[in-house]
């Protein structure tokens, strides 16, 4: 029997109320970091259990200890200062990193959290990194004379981090690059930086890319130096698959089948139709199934329901097609 159609997730899950409250208290000096970390561990354990109970194949730690995917790494690196509040959208604000000196890593940033999450399960847990292009694009730069110099320096640091994750035992390493498709004229630079990150890695490498005009960068996208592309498909009605059709690449695809920006839970049939569309383009052994993006903006119930419908749709499809 053919194997394949593994289920996974993109990265983040919603933070429980007690964690949001605790983070707030830490910000106001009413709780210390050690207590916060205990709560973050508790929340991580909750999400590992949710994923195991659902029967997912490749797990994520849910990013309970990260505020923002860029700020988290920069706060734990050298060379960055953190700005005052800037608005992301609506009433959402965040603090943006500022490169004020050469950026670099004095110690591993994410390895301990990966080890903790992996200690809770026998299923593989992905190591999750933010890519150099996105790190630079979502930071202010007061130090480097060019974006290129900034991005390449970051790529070296992210590569070191990936090596550390691999040494710790991570079989999957995902390098998120959501900013990569925003500027077609810098795609070549972004690809070069990603190549520095993945060079010599034995782990299975993934990059998650979202929100972009993929058509104009597709040729470069499909050649990014990773084993697997993770793309959102549900919220664009699987239009992207048309681009992927007939490509000769041997890449794996992780295909998003539920929209993370919508409260409505997709039906099993709807998701199954999406999976079938994916199978028209990719063989099951090179196709993974997941939500479009991180689920952190959904409620706990919505996130679990979206994972559940994903897993059920995959299970039924596998049964119908005789996939192991």
């Amino acid at each position: 029997m053919t194997r394949g159609l593994l289920t996974t997730a993109v990265g983040s899950y919603p933070k429980p109320d007690y964690l949001l409250k605790a983070r707030n208290q830490v910000a106001r000096g009413k709780l210390d970091n050690k207590d916060l970390q205990e709560l973050e561990k508790r929340a991580t354990a909750h999400w590992i259990k949710v994923q195991e109970d659902l029967g997912m194949d490749v797990l994520v730690d849910g990013e309970m200890y990260r505020g923002d995917m860029v700020t988290y790494f920069s706060e734990n690196m050298e060379g960055f200062a953190i700005s005052g509040l800037v608005r992301s959208y609506g009433n959402r604000y965040y603090r943006k990193p500022i490169a004020v000196a050469p950026v670099g890593r004095s110690r591993p940033v994410s390895v301990e959290w990966w080890q903790y999450a992996q200690s809770l399960t026998d299923k593989p847990v992905k190591g999750m990194l933010t890519g150099p292009y996105t790190m630079a694009d979502w930071s202010f730069n007061e130090y480097y004379p060019s974006r290129e110099a900034f991005i390449i320096d970051l790529a070296r640091s992210v590569h070191e981090e990936a090596l550390d994750l691999e040494r710790a035992g991570a079989e999957y390493i995902q390098i998120d690059e959501p900013a990569v498709s925003t500027r077609p004229d810098e795609m070549e630079l972004a690809a070069r930086a990603l190549g520095i990150v993945t060079k010599g890695l034995r782990a299975f490498t993934i990059t998650h890319v979202c929100y972009g005009d993929f058509a104009s960068v597709f040729d470069q996208l499909i050649r990014l130096p990773v084993d697997m592309l993770d793309l959102e498909m549900a919220n664009s009605n699987y239009e992207l698959l048309k681009l992927l059709k007939g490509n000769s690449s041997d890449k794996y695809l992780s295909m998003g089948v539920v929209d993370v920006h919508n409260h409505v839970i997709e039906t099993v049939d709807h998701v199954k139709r999406g999976i079938r569309l994916g199978l028209e383009v990719f063989p099951p052994e090179r196709l993974y199934i997941d939500p479009d993006c991180g689920l952190k903006t959904r409620t706990d119930e919505e996130a679990i329901a979206k994972l559940q419908v994903t897993v059920t749709a995959v299970r039924e499809t596998k049964k119908e097609l005789g996939i192991e």
Binding site: R87, S88, Y89, D137, W138, A179, T182, R183, Y211, G212, H261, N262
Partner: peptide
Amino acid sequence: GLIRYFDTNT
């Protein structure tokens, strides 16, 4: 729904 505003992170 939310859409990225040009090439910004907003």
